[in-house]
Nucleic acid binder design. Sequence first.
DNA 1: TCTGAAACGTTCAAACTCGAACAATGGTTG
DNA 2: CAACCATTGTTCGAGTTTGAACGTTTCAGA
Lengths: 383, 383
Amino acid sequence: MSPEKSPEPAARSLFSLQRRERLMEQLRAHGSVTVRGLAAELGVSELTIRRDVNILADAGLVSRVHGGATLPSPLDRSASLSRHQANRYAIGMVVPSLDYYWPQVISGARAEAEDQQARIVVRGSSYDAADNRRQVQALLDTQNIDGLIVAPDMRGEAGHELLRWLNALPIPVILAERRSPADIPAHRLEWVATDHAFGAGMAIRHLWQEGHRKIGCLTDSSSPTSSHVVRGWRQAIAALRIPEEESVSEDSARVPAGERTAHFDRVLEMCRDTGTSAMLVHSDTQAVAFVQHCVDRGVDVPGSMAVVGYDDEVAYLAEPAISAVRPPKQYVGRVAVQLVTARLAEGRKRPVHRIQLNPDLIVRESSLGSPRAAADAGLASTT
Amino acid sequence: MSPEKSPEPAARSLFSLQRRERLMEQLRAHGSVTVRGLAAELGVSELTIRRDVNILADAGLVSRVHGGATLPSPLDRSASLSRHQANRYAIGMVVPSLDYYWPQVISGARAEAEDQQARIVVRGSSYDAADNRRQVQALLDTQNIDGLIVAPDMRGEAGHELLRWLNALPIPVILAERRSPADIPAHRLEWVATDHAFGAGMAIRHLWQEGHRKIGCLTDSSSPTSSHVVRGWRQAIAALRIPEEESVSEDSARVPAGERTAHFDRVLEMCRDTGTSAMLVHSDTQAVAFVQHCVDRGVDVPGSMAVVGYDDEVAYLAEPAISAVRPPKQYVGRVAVQLVTARLAEGRKRPVHRIQLNPDLIVRESSLGSPRAAADAGLASTT
DNA sequence: TCTGAAACGTTCAAACTCGAACAATGGTTG
DNA sequence: CAACCATTGTTCGAGTTTGAACGTTTCAGA
């Protein structure tokens, strides 16, 4: 049966076709793959991956290079690339990061673009409206772009101005993992986003079903996802009649990097005071850090503290492996490209689409089993 | 639903169809199946399963791989020609009405089904959960239905039970112009719906731009659209800083048919008392009746009372022709079919999609021009 | 330019899967 | 009632996939 499509090593063998699909996903996400890295990741021999690369190169889908493969390159003169089709559209993508979360969005976008004879031009940016605008402008100035997929910083007046500017561009603009606020006149903008509130709710219900009756939330409000996660957590604990005023909900945004240890100690102390036995932690990197901190303090995960992460980027790497809410990043990219190309093909008669996608919950060791008694020594104060 | 683990004696040809349905179910759930595993599970020979896989591959429903089958893969070059086989899927549609609003939804669904070699089977129902369920069950009992598009009545416990039942069906179910409530565990249901709140807001902003400063709302809460329209009206007047408590907002649901004239007289009196010079009226039929009533009472439309209808089904027939918010009904049907067929093709790996489409505002005579002075004779009390 | 490490390609074997050919069975039809 | 058809199962030779082993090629650093 098909394993989870995470970077996590494959637990079961894949059919060869599925392995090549995974190879293509990694390639689209990162621009290149290594034979050695992929063999380790997929649990097969380097020879097998090398054979796959050869098959894909023969099909014109990759450029074979020493040690691995890259996305098809115009510099690659092998005969197979003569299959390279003319591109109907050029779609620009400006994403906040090229190494966390967004590579899979890009991978999905590239896969869909391939299906639709479009090409994707990616620029990395940041969580800053001015930088976002600079990158979009640079794309528009230097390439013949037919449509845009962006994940703009929408905070403050600079963010609002950016949205109005994007709305006024003469080409289709799709927001990925962003929703245009109702009170900003940006009615042409279409978007596709994960329903993070639903994802948070799913995590809380899972922890409830594992027996936890006090479930907290640890987020980082510098991330645009954060407010949705908190909203979902709130709605879910309300539905379960867990009093919010007795629940731990902390924001790490203003904690200086050097004070994270103290911050986590305060969080653990609040957990002890309130009897909280489970935490939803956004994002994965913070979940990994939090779990490591618990282990350092002798707090057993999941015995004394169950943890669910968010994003499912690195949760599987922790010890114990951390459960996580997994947004459908590949599909976000795919659907964004579908929105661009449909808009280009159909024009104004097509109604503006706004699409929410539901995430999955990936259950691992960090949240299995019911909580031990609250008096358990593992939740004692730090010394 | 967990079917029996061993085949029962049955008509052999019927059994082979059921076996292929089981195969497709496993495939959609897990992404791939092995010939060996499925033969063991279904108690037949591997050759039988292999023959089934070949049949399904020829129909374009699976990709055949060494040892089993996967969902159709873009890397599989052998299956693509077969995707054009006629009537790949049968899609059932159960709609509340066959003569208002829904015919265009069905039309859009049929157009998309034609593009995708699917066939649509329609049953009319009503705004009643028990009737909705009877019609769905009748469809399922008498036809081999692969997916469903429904617009169920979701009010009360009967409506909630219907949603849970729909959620548990083993085939894809799409809600058209309905959104499953967040507090009902119906997480598999996908939907496509018009953003009626946005539509109402668009109408209010149009009337504001035409110079109206007091804008009311007349709805009919027996319609599921109504609550969204009221919410949009509220948000829009809040954004325009029109005090809601000084605004006319009336519900016609409980007005007996014989008392409509008196009801409209009361509404006009409230308008006079509050200086309301424009009304958003849901639905079109009520807008036509309201405009006719205004004319009967000597209230000039749009001079003394501007009116915008909703649904754009019959608004154009009135004299004067009535502006209306037009939901993208054809696209609702189209997108619903796209959701069904994508679910059938991609199975469980595809995230649940929830899609909002923006309506258009069609401006006609009934809302053009600024309001005349409040003292205008045309808004005098009825005699 | 040389060298060692890494990567690649070829060969062969093991394990597993496929499918043609043929047979058996039960239902349908003339 | 016999002939025909659809469906399913068995057998066995052919085919596919993967990895080990080993010789060859490539690349980066000294």
